[in-house]
């Protein structure tokens, strides 16, 4: 199995990554080489092997109960900007184009 440039363009969309043309060219070659190396495990008989992490090593569950933990610092002290209980984010140009009424 190999990976082509069109596959990588689709994956970049899924991964929310902007890639330049030289990056796409390089990544296509790198990913092909890496996946070719990974082919080694395709010949293994895995019918008797359950995936790790699904049986005894499963994370323990705890009771779903609301506790009294609070943040060490209130959120307004972490935020670059805070107003009326909300984080204030920089305005996107697209919002102006759509005529939405967000502040800042």
């Amino acid at each position: 199995m190999t990976i082509e440039r069109k596959d990588l363009e689709r994956i970049a969309e899924l991964a929310r990554l902007r890639l330049s043309e030289p990056e796409l060219v390089r990544l296509t070659a790198d990913c092909q080489a890496i996946l070719a190396y990974f082919e080694a495990i395709r010949g293994l008989d895995l019918t008797q092997a359950t995936p790790a992490g699904t049986l005894e090593q499963e994370a323990p569950m705890r009771e779903d109960r609301v506790g009294s933990d609070s943040l060490e610092r209130p959120p307004e002290q972490m935020a670059p900007a805070w107003r009326e209980g909300y984080f204030v984010l920089p305005r996107l140009p697209a919002m102006d184009a759509e005529g939405e009424g967000a502040e800042e």
């Binding site: 994956i11 991964a15 990554l17 902007r18 890639l19 990056e23 990913c31 890496i34």
Partner: peptide, 21 residues
């Protein structure tokens, strides 16, 4: 897309791409 494209280096992008794949 822009922040991740500008902020991550080549190896991190390679692994995110292969992991997503």
């Amino acid at each position: 897309r822009e922040a991740r494209g500008a902020g991550f280096g080549a190896e991190v992008k390679r692994r995110i791409m292969l992991g997503t794949y």
